[in-house]
Design a protein around this nucleic acid. Structure first.
Lengths: 213, 213
DNA sequence: GACTACATGTATACCAGGTGCAGAAATCTC
DNA sequence: GAGATTTCTGCACCTGGTATACATGTAGTC
């Protein structure tokens, strides 16, 4: 509400950015576990205590950039146009993400992003931190379903965990392939096919899983 | 290969059990974060170094008991009788768990188990550790689906993440209610109803989620 | 511009989880 | 029993994270 955030506010933002930047740079160069927070603090010319005032834990130095995405699915569901089901809206949004190589779909192969992704997947504590985003996304989506689709509590929760789990799985799959060296453009067509298959599965259910024998 | 595990082996098992027991006792009494691993080691009459030889991290002192359940769904799918779909087998197994008040369904209200559950849910690092079990369960289930239901890779993975997420959600829901004081016997009927609803949703899909307006 | 009030940053010391290492103690093999 | 091997221990050490007490800068007021 301003244009004039005030000097104090601007300084805070600059410090925040400086710490984050120093952290990412060092982590990409030497690995997450090989760099201590003390080193990050020093590189950002800030005391350790101050670093922890900006980021509650070491992992947040990496994952804070994804905070916006936590409520993305919920927003998409809320913003869908009339006569559109939540699943349709989410599918279209995911396909758009693939077209635009949105990193959240796992289909972005810019070297920086790829290296960062690989680092996250190779670091258990970072993976764990990502899981918490998943939980947040589930809660937000469930609420959006309840409020805009008149869905009962239980159904909303069940639907949201399924949807989030599937999106996550699709993204991880794409990521894995790019990490193994496949170019995003080569992967694109099959990524679209996989996404369509996945959303069809969500819509139609698993009743076609074959019985034994 | 046994009958005679050897003295060394038996001692190892006793030490393992002693550490685990001391840990659970102390944690239940004072809380997970209020007890240090040094205290656990002392109570178990073992050095801190030895404790970490048996349990790779503090959290494992609590969650190692659930290690067996990691592959439970996969085993159920593999062991299903002929002409039975994976989902049917899993639903029956879950319903049996509810009847028997299996803690994994969240429907066991023995004070000890309830207190432990509450502690886990209240401790972020323990919740995070549980999530890793979920990931393991997903992988195991996906493989079982691939091998016994002739399901393609992608479908198996997608189905497994949906199934595991839903089971987890059901269990959490039950747990929440028991923690809030509802007796398991009172909850039982609705827990069954919820489970049946959830598995029906898995089978039939989410296509009935209503559009906007 | 000086003064106060408050937010922010710093230095230091500290705690707890976890690891590396060298040697002592127990167990196994013969 | 003797010797090889595994396991346990004590100790020092590193790192993430916090508490405390103090310094510094900023915002608003007169």
């Amino acid at each position: 509400m301003d244009g004039k955030p005030g000097l104090r506010e601007r300084k805070k933002q600059r410090t925040h950015a400086a710490i984050s930047e120093a952290a990412i740079t060092l982590f990409l160069e030497h690995g997450f576990n090989q760099v201590s927070v003390a080193q990050v603090a020093e590189a950002a010319e800030v005391s350790k205590r101050t670093l922890f005032a900006y980021f509650p834990a070491k992992e947040d130095l990496v994952v804070h950039r994804l905070a916006d995405h936590e409520t993305e699915s919920a927003r998409v569901v809320r913003a869908r146009s009339p006569r559109t089901t939540p699943l349709t809206a989410l599918r279209e949004h995911f396909l758009k993400g693939l077209r635009e190589r949105d990193p959240i779909t796992g289909l972005n192969d810019h070297p920086q992003i790829l290296k960062l992704t690989r680092m996250i997947l190779d670091t258990p504590s970072l993976v764990a931190r990502m899981e918490r985003f998943k939980a947040g996304a589930e809660r937000a989506l469930a609420q959006a379903l309840r409020e805009t689709a008149d869905t009962p509590e239980l159904t909303a929760r069940l639907a949201s965990v399924q949807i989030v789990a599937v999106q996550w799985s699709l993204a991880q799959d794409n990521t894995q392939r790019l990490v193994h060296g496949e170019p995003a453009d080569d992967r694109y067509a099959s990524a679209v096919g996989d996404a369509e298959h996945a959303f069809a599965l969500l819509e139609n259910g698993l009743r076609h899983l074959p019985p034994r024998k």
